[in-house]
Design a binder for these strands. Structure first.
Lengths: 340, 340
DNA sequence: TTGTAAGCGTTATCAC
DNA sequence: GTGATAACGCTTACAA
């Protein structure tokens, strides 16, 4: 490995002079600078960021922890985060917790030992609290994404889950649906709770009754086994005419189940969901969704994080950004009567 | 920041003893070990990986560079790479070159300065050669994914592009299609060239003429502007009855174009493509594709990389893995006559 | 304008 | 079993 000392020797200067050339710091004669530059070129010198980080106590490395890398919501979000980080000269490390607290714990360890300068993360749920407290105790700045965690105050970017869910329900009700079920993520996740609330509010506004057995709670990640959901759906009599799912992944899972039973969407069952399916949804977009501004989640969250890192001493108040969801009406809802 | 010296002082031992406890190296009395462990707990000690990397000359960090983070082929591949890395105790850094040579160059710099232990990458194309030579010159082990780069010998995981494309064409021909166009990625990318070859072979096998103007070459990434493609398609007289695209992203772009013109798939135009659309394709899978084993690309590539890193001194011959593509017949092809 | 010395937090080496 | 010391590659502070 070529070090500044190798360069220094060959250029007949001290290592310090080489360091100054690299960092454009201090006053250096043009002649020396040119000479050092030339030797660096010749020797293919590349600065050792590890050594630099050790002395500077900062890595210029940020971390983005998402809960599902195959979910287009999160990959789009990642693009936003990446762009914002790059713009400010930070590099981005990346992790995927897979909605698992254990994997999240692993990544938090990684984050701590790698001494990244800051973390942008979608927590697995309320039980993530100790992980966040650990980060806080070690003075690692972080910004939460998409999900609140009771018990910790911090910067956060959220979607308007309640209002989005309410809109979806109202849309269904206006199309004449009266038996609307909901397949949701874990109630230990704030966004799932809010979407449930929005669902209930939507029912109330349309003067539809809320039925406890119309709620099926599972994981926001993709499901290995659909049998429980199948049993739940089969047990509903009369069956719902529409299903609202708590996110895009669950919409796909529900459709997978329905198709396995030979049922068609929207002819036999209407489906709406939170989050869009991304650009690679087949053909023209089909699902009616409450689309979130995924890219903005990442971009704004990253910007907040970097701001927080750079103003680390001046204690700014915690910021909370709430991004609205947009109802995109497409073809997955069957009109049971003409809209009002 | 708590260091081993802080621990040492409080536990009345030397820093070296603390280091031994952390690494489970050397012989230590159970009593000392317990005492040190206790103090570490109390002080919330977390080892500084930066310092460790500096002395150990390895980071246990690997890098995965893909060309399109929003492409389900690559996110699935990333999952495979992640799983394999984790299994072997490596952490994974992640980058997205966006099919851009410039961004790729940036990431190569990042890779060099961060001193990651190895790199798994899908190169932007043949002009990536200098980037690979730079990695080689700096002794950074790497494994190529999905695309060969003429001029460099290295480990690589490829799909059987030629055979996959041939199958897709044969499938179309068997359905009675005679005018089959192709929208492909840049010819500076090996997989695009091979898919074109497969296309030609497929035509020949079915005794269909090859027409130069049936080929439209663009980028494998998503397109901002469809007007060129539109002009090309409009210029074909008689128009093709089917289009083969070089990857999934281009299939989506072609469908976007067709829908913009009020044309339907497969009624007005049949579409087939390379790579599947991932789990979040709308409803039931619609596109007929040559699906690649995306997860295996990542998993096997990562395994090869780690093997290469661990046997760095013993010069193993370069390995090349070719994964077959599987034809998945769905609903995007209109039968013009009954199959043979 | 340039150089010297110390230190960032850790581990390898060699003593005891 | 345990400890002192040097080293990893770099930058900050101070000196010349």
């Amino acid at each position: 490995m070529v070090t500044i000392y190798d360069i220094a020797e060959k250029a007949n200067v001290s290592a310090m002079t080489v360091s100054r050339v690299i960092n454009n710091s201090g006053r250096i004669s043009e002649k020396t600078r040119a000479k050092v530059r030339k030797v660096m070129e010749e020797m293919n010198y590349v600065p050792n960021q590890t050594a630099r980080s050790l002395v500077l106590q900062q890595t210029k490395l940020l971390f983005l922890l998402i809960t599902d890398i195959t979910n287009p919501f999160y990959t789009t979000l990642a693009r936003g985060a990446e762009d914002a980080a790059k713009k400010q000269g930070y590099r981005l490390l990346f992790g995927n917790s897979d909605e698992s607290l254990e994997k999240e714990a692993d990544y938090v360890t990684t984050i701590l030992t790698t001494r990244v300068d800051g973390v942008l993360l979608a927590p697995a749920g309320d039980p993530s609290l100790p992980h966040l407290e650990l980060l806080r105790r070690h003075d690692v700045p972080f910004v939460l994404l998409d999900r609140e965690v009771p018990g910790i105050d911090c910067d956060i970017v959220l979607g308007d889950s309640k209002e989005g869910a309410r809109q979806l329900v109202s849309h269904l009700a206006e199309a004449g649906h009266e038996r609307i079920a909901m397949v949701n993520g874990s109630s230990s996740i704030s966004s799932a709770r809010l979407r449930l609330q929005g669902y209930k509010e939507g029912l109330k506004l349309s003067e539809l009754p809320f039925r406890e057995d119309h709620i099926f709670e599972t994981s926001f990640g993709s499901l290995n086994d659909l049998s429980e959901m199948e049993a739940w759906l089969a047990g509903l009599n009369p069956p719902p005419t529409a299903i609202l799912t708590g996110n895009n992944v669950l919409a796909v899972e529900v459709m997978r189940l329905l198709h396995g039973q030979g049922l068609r969407v929207p002819e036999d069952m209407s489906i709406v969901c939170f989050d869009d399916l991304g650009p690679y949804a087949d053909v023209e977009p089909f699902l009616t969704v409450a689309a979130q501004q995924a890219y903005q989640f990442g971009y704004m969250g990253m910007s907040m994080l970097i701001e927080r890192i750079q103003d680390k001493e001046t204690a700014q108040p915690w910021k909370k950004i709430v991004l609205p969801a947009e109802l995109l009406v497409r073809r997955s809802v069957k009109p049971l009567r003409s809209g009002e």
